[in-house]
Lab assay of single mutants.
Amino acid sequence: LVRYRTISKIPQITLNFVDLKGDPFLASPTSDREIIAPKIKERTHNVTEKVTQVLSLGADVLPEYKLQAPRIHRWTILHYSPFKAVWDWLILLLVIYTAVFTPYSAAFLLKETEEGPPATECGYACQPLAVVDLIVDIMFIVDILINFRTTYVNANEEVVSHPGRIAVHYFKGWFLIDMVAAIPFDLLIFGSGSEELIGLLKTARLLRLVRVARKLDRYSEYGAAVLFLLMCTFALIAHWLACIWYAIGNMEQPHMDSRIGWLHNLGDQIGKPYNSSGLGGPSIKDKYVTALYFTFSSLTSVGFGNVSPNTNSEKIFSICVMLIGSLMYASIFGNVSAIIQRLYSGTARYHTQMLRVREFIRFHQIPNPLRQRLEEYFQHAWSYTNGIDMNAVLKGFPECLQADICLHLNRSLLQHCKPFRGATKGCLRALAMKFKTTHAPPGDTLVHAGDLLTALYFISRGSIEILRGDVVVAILGKNDIFGEPLNLYARPGKSNGDVRALTYCDLHKIHR
Rank of each mutant, 00 (worst) to 15 (best):
I166L: 08
G116W: 04
I146Y: 01
N312A: 01
I332S: 03
R371V: 03
Y384G: 05
N156W: 05
N250A: 14
V393C: 08
P273S: 03
R356F: 15
M390R: 07
P70T: 08
W87N: 01
G426W: 01
K66Y: 15
H264M: 01
P369I: 02
M328E: 03
D178A: 01
D137H: 03
I144Q: 01
I248T: 01
E252F: 01
A430T: 12
M322G: 02
E359C: 01
M433L: 10
S192E: 11
D88F: 01
I340F: 08
G280L: 01
T233D: 01
A213G: 09
S301I: 01
R362F: 01
K287Q: 01
I183S: 04
P128S: 05
M139Y: 03
G223V: 04
K66Q: 15
P254L: 05
T98H: 01
Y170T: 01
P309K: 01
I198M: 07
Y377Q: 10
A69I: 08
A449T: 15
F171G: 08
K84A: 03
I166T: 04
L207V: 13
Q365F: 01
V393D: 01
I91L: 01
K395D: 07
P117E: 05
M139P: 01
T233N: 01
D286K: 01
P128C: 15
F294C: 01
A423V: 08
D143S: 01
S283F: 01
N275C: 01
L428S: 04
I361M: 08
W89A: 03
K425H: 09
W75P: 01
D133M: 01
L230G: 04
A440Q: 08
S298G: 14
A225Q: 06
D257F: 04
S326P: 12
Y97S: 01
L263V: 03
G334L: 03
A167I: 05
Q379P: 02
T233M: 11
L263Y: 03
T347H: 15
V168I: 08
G164M: 14
L279H: 14
D444F: 07
K172D: 01
L187R: 14
E112W: 13
N368G: 09
D257Q: 06
V226K: 10
R208K: 06
A392N: 07
H264P: 01
A69Y: 04
P103I: 01
V336L: 04
S276Y: 04
V357A: 03
H169V: 04
F397D: 01
N306D: 01
I138R: 01
D444T: 06
P118G: 12
C417V: 11
H351V: 03
H239M: 01
I284L: 13
K395S: 12
L201D: 01
L110I: 03
A181N: 01
S313C: 13
N335C: 03
H73K: 10
R421H: 08
R74P: 07
F294G: 01
P163W: 12
